[in-house]
């Protein structure tokens, strides 16, 4: 009897163990790496191009993707301008990670031109084009005409205070062209390992405010959001940008209300706050890229969704090469005299 029990147990174990098998689909001998080119450039600035290569899934590291012998050429309207210079700074002060190498132009890219980046590396050639969209002509950001803010303050379990208030934003959308917008609104803050705006990262007014440094938006303009824009959410900074197109207001003045909120432990000690805002016009490619990366982030690991391909506009390779234009300004808001905003 004992023999049968042991045999049965072995059979069951074999049966369960045989319910899966591994297959090797990433054979290094058959794998062809692709050139990866990433460059997002603002108008009237030099061009910075990151060149790496793709690897077999699971093998990604600084060393495996590194390409240091690439030739990166810049063309303006089809005319060769220069070979970009390789920049490899070993470390950044105060940071654990070494800097990532890149290629930099001396040439300043400007409006009304088309730029071509051509990369030769790992016996391949990849090219991509970009130009700059028109800068947004009129931008107004105002506290909603109300005189009192919705200071529905309360403390959460982390003893943070929340401040909510609506902001009216107005954009004058040019006609006869498809426009894509990205809006960032933020406050300056004390210390945060990553932020969206490098030049103000440490330029903090409220040095003791431990805020998240960003504003969240309600779905107040659902008609637009559901047309093409991703819903700002999740923990990725680019999700916090409000990205949309002009499909429903092409050629018109577009106004909407952003419902902003700020949180922070010491928020109760302030009575004035400065909001910084950027209204970007971005290219179609950059819009598609942000939408796809947002979709990817939202669905990654979801077995019920087909995998999302992150948008690429690099011929002969992978990556995004695009341009943007930006309107940048600030707005000072005096908080109402209440328990939060009266400086008590």
């Amino acid at each position: 009897m004992k023999k049968y029990i042991i045999l049965s147990a072995i059979s069951i174990v074999m049966l369960i163990a045989s319910c899966h098998k591994d297959i090797d689909i990433y054979n290094a001998d058959d794998f062809n790496a692709q050139i990866v080119v990433n460059s997002i450039t603002g108008v009237d600035s030099t061009i910075k191009v990151f060149v790496t290569k793709s690897v077999i899934p699971g093998q990604l590291s600084d060393s495996t993707i590194k390409i240091n012998n690439a030739i990166v050429k810049l063309y303006e309207d089809g005319i060769f301008k220069e070979n970009l210079t390789y920049v490899n700074l070993p470390f950044n002060l105060g940071y654990e990670n070494p800097s990532k190498p890149y290629f930099k132009s001396n040439y300043i890219a400007s409006q009304n031109h088309t730029y071509t980046i051509e990369v030769e590396a790992i016996e391949q050639k990849a090219t991509a084009e970009f130009s700059f969209p028109t800068r947004v002509s009129t931008v107004e950001l105002l506290p909603k005409e109300c005189t009192s803010f919705d200071t529905s303050e309360y403390m959460n379990s982390y003893c943070d205070y929340y401040l909510n208030f609506p902001l009216d934003i107005t954009i004058n959308d040019p006609e006869d062209e498809k426009n894509y917008y990205m809006i960032n609104v933020f406050v300056k803050r004390y210390d945060f390992a990553y932020d969206t705006i490098q030049e103000i990262l440490y330029d903090t007014i409220y040095s003791d405010i431990n805020v998240n440094g960003w504003l969240g938006f309600d779905n107040t303009i659902t008609d637009v959001q559901y047309v093409n824009a991703p819903i700002p959410s999740s923990d990725k900074p680019w999700d916090r940008s409000y990205i949309f197109n002009d499909e429903v207001f092409n050629g018109q003045e577009f106004s909407t209300t952003l419902n902003a909120n700020i949180s922070g432990e010491k928020l109760k000690d302030v009575n004035e706050i400065t909001l910084y805002y950027q209204v970007f016009t971005i290219s179609t490619e950059l819009f598609n890229y942000y939408v796809s990366i947002n979709k990817y982030n939202q669905t990654s690991g979801n077995p019920f969704v087909e995998p999302v391909n992150i948008f690429s506009n690099v011929e002969g390779g992978i990556g995004i090469v695009a341009g943007y234009n930006m309107h940048y300004d600030s707005l000072q808001i005096t908080l109402p005299d209440n328990e939060i905003g009266n400086g008590k």
Binding site: L60, I65, D195
Partner: peptide
Amino acid sequence: DEYGRYFGYNGYSCYNDNCTYEGYPYYG
């Protein structure tokens, strides 16, 4: 493939050349 997305978190610049990257899949 897998590839590195090689620029700052905001997608358009890096702070003091400190660019971070994340691995992204390429499905083709």
